[in-house]
C-alpha cells in the first residue's frame, strides 16, 4: 500500500505529461517515422529539417514577432492601469469609491466569450481590426489584478502616505520608490501571468485579424498548412519551439508558481 502511491502517482504524471514529451520527440522525426508500424516513440534518425521547414516559406517568424509585441505592449498597459487604479482605491477617499470599485470588479462575472460578437463590432467600428491595439484591447482591464494589488497596497498605512505627500513627495514618486518595491513579488507574478495569457490568447486575435501579417503566433500556428497534409514534422517542431521557453520557465519557477497559487486562493 505504501509503495503503491508513488507508483500510481508516477504513472499518472507520465500520462499527463506524455503529449508534451511526444511533441518534443516527434519534432525530430523524419517523414517515415510517423508512418512506421508499430508506431515510434523516438526518432529512428533524429533530424532538424522539421525546424528549418517550419520557418522556411511560412510566416512563423512574423507571427512570433507580432505576439511578442502585443504581449509586451498589452502587459505594460495592463499593469499600468491595474497599479494606478489600485493605488487610487487604496489611498484616496472620494465619493462613490465603493461603487466604482464594485463596477470594475464585477466585470469578472461577464463571460468574455459571450461578448465576442459585440466586442468585434466595436473594434470594427473604431477601425482597429488588424492592429496591435485591436488585438490587446479586450485584455487591458484585469479585475483580478486590480483586486490583488489593492490588497497589497493597503498594507501601507494611509498616514504614512499623507506624511510623505505633505513633505512634498508626489504620488508618482511614492509609487515608484516605495509601493512598487515592497509589492515586488506580487507585481512580478502578475506581470508574468499577463504576458503568458496575452501571448497565448487565441479566439480574440483570430477574430480581429484578417491580414496574414498581423496574425499572432498562437493563431498562426494552427494555419501553417502542414498538418492538413499529414506532414506532421514541421507542425510538431513549431509547437515545440513555442512551448519550450515557457516549459523551462515553469520548471525553474515551479516553487514560486506553487506558492503564488496557494497564496492567491487560500489567502495565506
Amino acid at each position: 500500500m505504501k509503495k503503491l502511491v508513488p507508483i500510481a502517482a508516477t504513472i499518472l504524471s507520465l500520462v499527463v505529461v506524455f503529449p508534451i514529451l511526444y511533441a518534443i520527440s516527434a519534432s525530430f522525426f523524419s517523414f517515415s517515422d510517423f508512418t512506421s508500424i508499430p508506431a515510434r516513440l523516438f526518432p529512428a534518425d533524429p533530424t532538424l529539417t522539421n525546424y528549418t521547414r517550419a520557418f522556411a516559406g511560412t510566416h512563423l517568424a512574423r507571427f512570433l514577432a507580432n505576439s511578442l509585441i502585443t504581449a509586451t505592449l498589452g502587459t505594460i498597459i495592463r499593469m499600468a492601469i491595474s497599479i494606478g487604479s489600485a493605488y487610487v482605491f487604496a489611498f484616496y477617499t472620494f465619493k462613490g469609491k465603493n461603487l466604482l470599485f464594485v463596477i470594475l470588479i464585477a466585470t469578472m462575472l461577464l463571460p468574455s466569450d459571450a461578448l465576442l460578437i459585440e466586442n468585434y463590432i466595436t473594434i470594427r467600428t473604431l477601425a482597429l481590426t488588424d492592429t496591435y491595439l485591436g488585438i490587446i484591447s479586450t485584455s487591458l482591464l484585469a479585475p483580478v489584478h486590480l483586486f490583488l494589488l489593492r490588497q497589497y497596497f493597503r498594507m501601507v498605512s494611509r498616514e504614512y502616505r499623507e506624511a510623505a505627500i505633505i513633505e512634498g513627495c508626489s504620488d508618482a514618486r511614492f509609487l515608484m520608490t516605495l509601493l512598487i518595491p515592497i509589492s515586488q513579488s506580487v507585481i512580478i507574478t502578475l506581470t508574468l501571468q499577463s504576458f503568458t495569457s496575452i501571448f497565448n490568447d487565441y479566439l480574440w486575435p483570430l477574430l480581429v485579424t484578417n491580414n496574414v501579417s498581423m496574425r499572432t503566433v498562437q493563431v498562426g500556428i494552427t494555419m501553417l498548412g502542414f498538418s492538413e497534409n499529414l506532414d506532421y514534422g514541421p507542425q510538431f517542431a513549431a509547437i515545440t519551439l513555442l512551448m519550450t521557453p515557457i516549459l523551462i520557465a515553469f520548471i525553474l519557477l515551479n516553487k514560486n508558481i506553487k506558492e503564488s497559487v496557494s497564496t492567491r486562493f487560500t489567502g495565506r
Partner: peptide, 29 residues
C-alpha cells in the same frame, strides 16, 4: 520523486490552448 510528479502534473498549464489542441489533433489522428 513527489516533486517531479508535481511538476509533470502542472506542466500542461505551460502549453497554450491552440498548441495543445493542434497536438491532440495530430496524436489522435
Amino acid at each position: 520523486l513527489a516533486s517531479l510528479n508535481q511538476i509533470f502534473m502542472f506542466l500542461p498549464m505551460a502549453v497554450a490552448m491552440s498548441s495543445s489542441m493542434m497536438l491532440f489533433k495530430m496524436m489522435f489522428n
